[in-house]
Write a protein that binds this DNA or RNA. Structure first.
Lengths: 154, 154
DNA sequence: TGGGCATAATTGACACGTCAATCAGCTTGA
DNA sequence: TCAAGCTGATTGACGTGTCAATTATGCCCA
């Protein structure tokens, strides 16, 4: 006989939560380490370069880039500053809006991205896809969708 | 007819991977924001305080703390430095090993931890447990276990 | 037309994390 | 016993992330 709405998670639920958190952490860390090892790029670098490489003219307004990869704009600014210092991207003034900046994929950035992509895709398969059965993979997608939908609804 | 071992993930697999990553990110961010809002503690602070609160005498050697929460020792050092400045913990010399440091839960730390715990557990239920069906929750646990086992085997 | 507001992007301050180097104290074997 | 090496912990440098403030430009309408 329950007292109504349960207030706190059970031990089993807490254990799953902790597993979920810690596993995600471990997976991301391993992924980042392999990417950096193979290419010298961080996962942030890769996200930026991927977005630029797919953009028309391999250039994007800074705010479009932020929207594409889902980052805050100040985060983008800081990250682009670091990437610019390393010669991976360039920033140019925007012709149509003098406030704006256009981010351009630099040759070194393109080369690094191209060199990183195959190993990165292989790592995704090795670390994530190959670890799960097809049913688990499908379930992972549904769980992510459910969590997102729930978060958005709060 | 396949050519043998598939080298790269399919688009569907990549999509699930991206959902997995981004959702984990969003969930952690929301969790951290709520915890900080409610208590002024970061998730790192909370992990440290939880470990200390469960330790005999509410004290731990720095390296035991690192092992308990699974952090690198330099990360622990840096974090303890910040927490000590805020009066959440104290560091004392270790009687049995002059190299060692003992980390002690300070009164302010205990109070912050106690104030944080109920809202934090409620948030875990609201953000995670309530978002999933019982079957999904179970599947989440199994997926985490599979990923961890696979990672450990690599 | 020009003052007020919105928007694009950057900056500074600070928290967090990793890596490599460092320091001090413990341990041990010729 | 004492030099060499191991271990516990800290530090510094730097990359990363957030928030709040700032700068500069565009836009709108009284």
């Amino acid at each position: 006989m329950s007292t109504g709405t349960r207030r706190f998670p059970t031990q089993a639920e807490l254990g799953i939560w902790r597993d979920y958190l810690e596993t995600g952490e471990a997976v991301r860390t391993e992924m980042a380490a392999r990417l950096h090892e193979a290419s010298g790029l961080s996962t942030g670098d890769y996200a930026v370069l991927l977005a630029l490489s797919e953009a028309p003219g391999q250039r994007l307004r800074s705010s479009e880039l932020a929207a594409t990869i889902g980052w805050e704009r100040s985060r983008v600014s800081h990250h682009l500053g670091r990437m610019e210092k390393r010669g991976l991207i360039r920033r140019e003034e925007c012709a149509t809006d003098n406030r704006g900046a256009e981010v351009v994929l630099a040759p070194d950035g393109l080369a690094a991205f191209q060199g990183a992509t195959r190993p990165h895709l292989r790592d995704i398969r090795e670390i994530f896809v190959d670890a799960l059965t097809p049913a688990q993979l499908e379930a992972a997608g549904e769980i992510a969708a459910a969590l997102r939908a729930h978060l958005a609804r709060e």
